[in-house]
């Protein structure tokens, strides 16, 4: 399968990349690992005139501890994250999520964490070849007015299937976006919009520089369901974070439950999360209840558009959340 023509530019430093984005804006796309971008271009979903490659920007590839934060450069490869003891210890959910991204051949060093969390939403009706899509009216995401996933829907129902995003949102991460002359920090809860067509609150002249994870002393876990253990995208995923109180090690002080691959963005489930506050770490029935609340709340967003049946995926929300909670609790108590 051939790529459409484009002009390839390789800036030698970060400033150079920002300058190019400032000039070309919507006409340009940023290439890191290419495992998502090039596939979309081959299918004719994206037709950038300019490709700005981050190949030479080694300064965007790092994992470091800074006070009570873990800072990860946007171009850090998935393989580097898996190999990091710091991530494994302080942000286990991210380690578990990265381990499941793609397959080793893609992970090794082509895929990057920045690319993973900035991957566009997917839908079985949209992520198809140009030939497939040419046979029918374009959908919302393709510039049309129809949604094939949900009858009579006036908006796009594509799904965010990023593993990294779900885990990072559970960890309460925020990201640094830079454009020429200015930079801003935004937490992932606000970064992901609920718009299927434009899933991120990001301008076309902005570049993702860094991901910052607060070290809060809690434990996290990530579980996902996919057809195969490798290559496939998740059809349901759950990232959880549990923190014990300072006074009683067996009491949950803070909980964050995030469910991915169900809605247009990973969703933070406020009701299920707050239900766990004050509960005991060995209270399995409380985890079961929180998982069921998660399923009830998340199911309202689910659309039949990433494979498998809707009923099965919704039922599995409960199971994935339950497994993730159990694992985070076991690790906390060790």
């Amino acid at each position: 399968m051939r790529l459409p023509r484009f002009e390839y530019i390789e800036p030698i430093n970060f400033e150079g990349a920002l300058d190019l984005l400032y000039i070309h804006k919507d006409n340009a796309k940023v290439l890191a690992g290419g495992t998502d971008l090039l596939v979309r271009m081959k299918k004719g979903l994206l037709k950038p005139k300019i490709i700005i490659s981050l190949k030479a920007l080694k300064e965007l590839s790092y994992i470091k501890k800074d006070d009570s934060y873990i800072k990860i450069g946007a171009r850090t490869s998935i393989a580097d994250i898996i190999a990091s003891d710091l991530i494994k210890k302080e942000a286990c959910a991210l380690f578990e999520a990265c381990e499941k991204i793609g397959a080793v051949t893609i992970q090794h060093y082509r895929g990057t964490i920045g690319g993973n969390i900035l991957q566009d939403n997917r839908c079985i009706h949209y992520n198809q070849s140009a030939f497939h899509r040419s046979g029918r009216q374009p959908c919302h995401k393709d510039g049309g007015k129809i949604c094939y996933a949900r009858d009579a829907s006036d908006r796009c129902n594509s799904t965010c299937q990023s593993d990294g995003a779900t885990a990072l949102m559970a960890l309460g991460a925020n990201i640094t976006l830079v454009r020429k002359g200015t930079e801003r920090i935004i937490d992932l809860d606000n970064f992901y919009t609920t718009d299927g067509i434009m899933p991120f609150a990001m301008e076309s002249n902005e570049l993702l520089k860094e991901i910052v994870i607060p070290i809060q002393g809690g434990k996290s876990s990530y579980k996902r369901l996919a057809y195969r253990s490798a290559i496939d995208y998740p059809i349901v995923s759950a990232g959880v974070f549990l923190k014990s109180s300072d006074t009683s090690k067996n009491e949950i002080e803070d909980a964050r439950i995030v469910v991915g691959a169900i809605a247009r963005a990973p969703i933070f489930l406020a009701k299920a999360s707050s239900f766990l506050k004050g509960k005991k770490f060995n209270d399995i029935s409380a985890f079961k209840k929180a998982a069921d609340i998660s399923m009830d709340n998340a199911s309202t967003f689910a659309v039949h558009n990433v494979g498998s049946t809707l009923e099965y995926r919704c039922a599995m929300v409960s199971e994935m959340v339950f497994q993730a909670l159990k694992e985070a609790a076991i690790v906390t108590q060790e």
Partner: peptide, 28 residues
Amino acid sequence: GCGNGECGACTVIVDKLAVNSCLYLAIE
């Protein structure tokens, strides 16, 4: 095979790492 990084038929080794050559720009 697929040209989309899903099948691995195009795997080659670049700098000792196996990669999908269908998703690797030649210029890189």
